[in-house]
Every structure is written in structure tokens, then in C-alpha cells.
Write a protein that binds this DNA or RNA. Sequence first.
RNA 1: UGGGGUGUAGCCAAGUGGUAAGGCAAGAGACUUUGACUCUCUUAUGCACAGGUCCGAUCCCUGUCACCCCAGCCA
Length: 550
Amino acid sequence: MAEINNFIKTIMENDLREGKVDHIATRFPPEPNAYLHIGHARAIINDFELSMAFNGTTNLRFDDTNPVNEGAEYVDGIIADLKWLGYVPTNVFFGSDYFEKTYEKAILLIKKGLAYVDDLSQEETTAYRGTLTEPGKNSPYRDRSVEENLRLFQEMRDGKYADGEKTLRAKIDMASPNINMRDPVMYRILHKEHHRQGNKWCIYPMYDFAHPLQDSFEGITHSLCSIEYDNHRPLYDWFIEKCEMENVPHQYEWGRLNITNTIMSKRYLRQLVEGGYVTGYDDPRMPTLVGLRRKGFTASSIKEFILYTGLSRINSTTEASNLDHFLMEDQKLVAPRYMAVFDPLPIVIDNYPDGQVEWFDASNNMENLEMGTHKIAFSKNLYIDRDDFVEVKPNKKWKRLALDSEVRLMNSYFVKAVSVEKDENGKITLVHCTYDPATRSGLDFKERKPNGTIQFCEASTCKPVTFNLFDVLIFDETEETKGLSFIERLNNDSWQTKNGFVEVAAKDVQPGDHFQLMRNGYYCVDKLSTGDNLVFNRTCSLKSSFTPNN
RNA sequence: UGGGGUGUAGCCAAGUGGUAAGGCAAGAGACUUUGACUCUCUUAUGCACAGGUCCGAUCCCUGUCACCCCAGCCA
């Protein structure tokens, strides 16, 4: 695996060398309200790999301070995804486990005159906050006595007030040019059952207050997050200082990673699932880890992709070909290579004996002979891909079958097309060919060169397969679809189905198995495959300068 | 028109006061029982722009422009 190397690693090295820290402790803090996607993978991989690079630790901490959308199903999903990626957290914590300690720190702030209970309504709070260009103004409740604040805050906890009736706010500076510092809310009242705490609490701490404390409680040294929290760092440091935290963590930010034509926002992904536009979070078009996995991406390909993509403070959008490259690199030497046809065109070898089936040995992977061989069948009746035949060669670069032209059928013989049969619409229904026994695979025939090499399936032994072809992860954007909502852009072309065949040797694959269908690219057996009902998802296409029209 | 962040090739991304790594993509060629793979070669006199300092600037300074983030009792 690639070695991690980025600006945060440099920061850690410097901190270690300068004695600012004597170890590295990171954390991955997902909110358990959605499935993880490829964007999270960047955070996960960096959090873990960075600490591992220094023999440090990485905690998994569920940031469950808002009970509204959070649920146990997501906790299990996130743990499963982490496991799939190959990471075992040093510890698993829940932000809600610290509610009591967090509460005590709030009390401390009140006692120090740095926090107060506010009676302003949500609308009033917004109005008092000012705007981007105008300073805010102090709440009339800002100067309550410590005693009164203590009593009121206790009453908030005791459930004496309705949702939204009061908040606890940090007393900082309502005129700060950084709006996050304008007396941020620390606690809100929410009479809502929590997935772990039940109804124990009716006040919940806000992210800005809870997060730095949680990091400190756990002894995190480097708290990594995405760049939009840059504005929050002064507040993070303020709480750490004013709460007199023993451990002093520091926050570092990196830019978010997007992939072209891919929806990455949790909110939109949820919309796609709940609106029934996709089949679920593991729909192979989804950029979720479960979706990518079902489509055929491997954990190591995703890791390599993230590591090679690097890290900076820029929000970037990388091309999907980047991800594909690492899947191919990962699978090239380990995926068995089988032959398949996607749009079957029957051919008959006129000079081959009727009823005879011949078996050849084919390498499972021509670039990795250690993978051994499998048997492939050959007979008079075969299928080739419709794309692999044309009556008249369109140009001299055509490397497939054409009338009066000879190609090698992979792993077997040279065949020459001699005539075609067509239906009333002019569609080719059968291609008559002849074969040359002297060109049998393995005989090292050198007398003449074929036009090219194509795949085939033997008609009596091959297995029917449904191929799911995905051209894009989520949607394709064209001139016509630009400006439409992402749901409107989720066009039918994002999931094409083809019914074709695969050679007999590939029939024993299991859901989740990966392989290459020669020139057609990399595939993964879908979880819906059962017995002879095979469904293959295309993970990615191979590079090819060929298009059917050239 | 407040504050913060960021601009290095089509896309990512290193780098540094001393003459622009690497990957992806793209193009050319070789090889080939996959138009794949592999191999070879090509791709920024240029680091958002304009000035300035300096023997020398992508790096330091000044100004300008562009994009992103912030006005949740979300995270």
C-alpha cells in the first residue's frame, strides 16, 4: 500500500520533534445518521493511517449529540464499513457517554461568568446575532447573575421548560467579525428520546461545545476535520481553554473530496433513497461505501485512491477515472479473466463437426500464471458480441471480425467469416464462418496473423447473465441535463441492463466475487445472484480508444 | 460592501529565495491470443493577475481578481 504523506503528517512530525506531543491520537467522529460514503473514506483513511504512521491511536466516536435523526442502524452500518476498510478503532465511544462530564464543564463556565441562560426565542436569537456585515447586540439576559444562571440551567436539565424556551450560551463577543464567536449556543432544550440515553436528558450540547471537550476527554492530540470548520477553530480553542481542559487537542482542517458527477451530500443521498429513486443505500450507483462495494470496488482500491489523491486544504473534485484506475490496478493480477458476450450474435462454424464439443485450457489470468487454468468449450455453434462483427471493415484499424477476414477466437481457433443471414429488417441473425484446425490454440501457429482476437461463448454450455452497466456513479451531466436537479439528472442511462452470456467456467462465482470480462472491463457478482440466475455489476470499463463507430 | 480559507497542467497534488516531483487523463510509438496490460516517448520558460524587493521570486512585500465557508436552538 502507498505510504501516507501529506501536510498533516508533516505537522505531526514537527509536533513530535518539538515535543508538543509525545504521541499521536486521532479520532473519526461520524454522526450516526447516514451511511458512510467515499467522502468519509478520505477522513477515515487519513485519521487511521496518520495515527498508524506514528504508532498512535484512533478512536471511533459516534457524534450523537442530536437525537433527531440518529439511530442504531447507522451505528452498525458505520462499524461494518470501517471493518470492511480494514480498520479496527483503538476504542469505540459515543459522544453521549460524555453528557454528564460535558454538563459539569458547562457549570464551570457559568460559575466563571462565561456562560448564561438566554430566554431569547430562536427568531430573536437570529435577529440579535447581526449579519455578516453588522455586529450583533447583547441579549437582555446576558448579564444574569451566576446564581440565577445556575438555577435556570438546572431547571433546564430538570425539564421545567419547553423546547426552545431557553438556551445556554457562551458569553464571548456579540460584535466579533467571526459569527461563530457571537455568543454561540452551548445547550438547547430538546424533549426527544436519545438512541442510547433514552429520556435521561432533555438538554443536548451543541457540536461546537461538545466536540472539543470530547476530544480532550479522550486525549486526542490532532483533531482532523473538513475545511468548513476552519471558522470554528477559535471557538474550539476557546472552549478548551475556558473549560480548563487537562488535555489540549488541536484542530486541523482539510479540503473535501468530490468526484465528478457524483452526489456526495448526505441530505441528497437520503432523498434518493427515501424517494425511491435508487434501490437503497447500497444501490450500485450510490457513492456510499456499501454501494461502491456492491458495484465492485474493493477496500484496497479505495484506500489507494485516497492515498494517491493526496490531501490539501482545497475542496477538490477529482475525475472518476482516478478511482477506476486504482480498482484496475488492484484487480489486474488477481481477478480471474473470463469471456462473455453482452449482445449475443450467433455464429456457426460450417466446417466444424456437428455435435462435437472440444475443451481447451485457458489461463485464469494471462498476466499471473500462478492462478492456473480453467476449461473453456468450443463447438460448431458459438456466440460472439454483435459489436465484434461488421460486414465490411470500416477502416484498416478494425481488429475484429468482418466478412472475408480472419480473427482468433480467444483461446481456440482462427475463424473467417464467409456469409451472413439476416431477418426481414436487415438485422444480422447468423454469421457463417470457417475455422482452420492448424491454428488451434497452443500450436504456436505463425504462418499468418489474424486481424485481431475476440471473445466468444460456446452455445450449449454458456450461462445466461444479466449485466448491469453503470456509466456513472450517480448521474450523467450533459448539455441537456445541465441546470436540472440532481434527481432529474439521474437518467435511465445510469443503469443499463444487458442480457448476454458468460463462459461456463464463470458460473460458479459467488456474490461479491470480482473478475475481468476481458476487454469488457471489471465486474462483480451482484448480491441478487442466486444459482444460475447470474447478475453481474460492471465496476469499471477498460481504457479503450475503440468506439463502435470508428 | 464583515471575517476566514484557497488559487501550481484537463483532474488531483508535491515543492521551495537557486531555476517546477508524482499519479490520473490525453497524444505518439513498440509489443500483444483482450483496441486491455506492459514498455518507450510527449504534455506548465510556467506556479490566479499586476507591480515591488533581490544577483535571482511560484516562494518575501503591496495591490487586484476569482472561487469556497460562516448569519441552525444541525454536524
